Simulated scan of single mutants.
Amino acid sequence: MLNHELKALLTKLKLHGVVTSLSANIDAVYSNKINFEEALIDACNTELLIRNSRSVDRLIRGANLRYAHARIDDVNFEANRIGLTQQSINRFSECTWIHNHKNMNLLGSTGIGKTWLACAFATKACSKGYKTKFFKYFEFIALFEKAVDNTIDKQLIKKLMTFDLLIIDDFGLTSIPSAVEGILLDFIDNFSMQGSLLITSQFSYDIWYEKFNDPTIADAILDRIIHNSYTFEISGDSMRKIGSSDEIATL
């Protein structure tokens, strides 16, 4: 049994993984089944695993994902959809595209599972330590509308620069207000050099251009997004015909 004083000290130091591991191994140490160094290595590894798990959980909670339970391992490849392969999904789940500041765009009709897949990529990004944030399109544009004439809200926009991955879900449902276009261009121009965007949309790229008032700004913004992106064009049956997104792995 682990010494009570040692256990209390380790607990006070919040080394809960060390406590768990040593408690399980201490008898084996005393009986010479394993040496102390082996027990200590196992204790340190257990502590690191627990800390990493907590860190990932914090990142996922902070991402405010619509489907925080979504995981790449649960992608449904048996559904009748075109544009997804297990090979491509596994490739992008390595998150090298985020490391290289590339973007990803998921295009397809409503109900095809774009949002779920975006969240699955997001949880994978969190598991690799990437700071992530999920926005519905309306929420994202609203931030920039508030920031046009408000210094405090401009600071909120600057905080977005601290993220590694920003998800914009359902891009293009409405036109982008003309007052927002300038500040949005400035943000995309800066963010594209240090972060990645994951955008879902029901619309093809040519329709994206129509959502802007100023064609010059549209060209500048979308050039930075599209030409630096990997694109999944997904088609097939609506996953909502199969069941609730909360009940099944929709993508």
Rank of each mutant, 00 (worst) to 15 (best):
Y30P: 04
T123N: 02
E145Y: 03
T110R: 09
E94I: 03
L49I: 15
F144G: 10
A120Q: 10
K131Q: 07
I34S: 08
L84R: 07
N25I: 06
S31F: 04
N76G: 06
L65P: 01
K133S: 10
F140R: 06
G129W: 09
G111M: 09
K14R: 13
D149P: 00
A43G: 03
L6E: 14
L13W: 14
N25C: 01
V56F: 00
A39G: 14
K7T: 11
N32W: 03
T123S: 10
H101E: 03
W97N: 05
N103H: 15
G62E: 10
A118E: 02
D74K: 14
M104T: 05
A147G: 10
T20W: 00
I34H: 05
L59R: 13
G62W: 02
L15F: 11
R58A: 11
K114A: 06
T123Y: 15
K146T: 04
R61C: 08
Q87Y: 12
I26W: 13
L6K: 09
C119S: 15
G113I: 05
T132W: 11
C119I: 03
E37A: 13
I26P: 04
R81Y: 04
H99I: 14
R71G: 04
I112Q: 05
T115R: 12
A70K: 07
D74C: 12
K124L: 06
I60H: 00
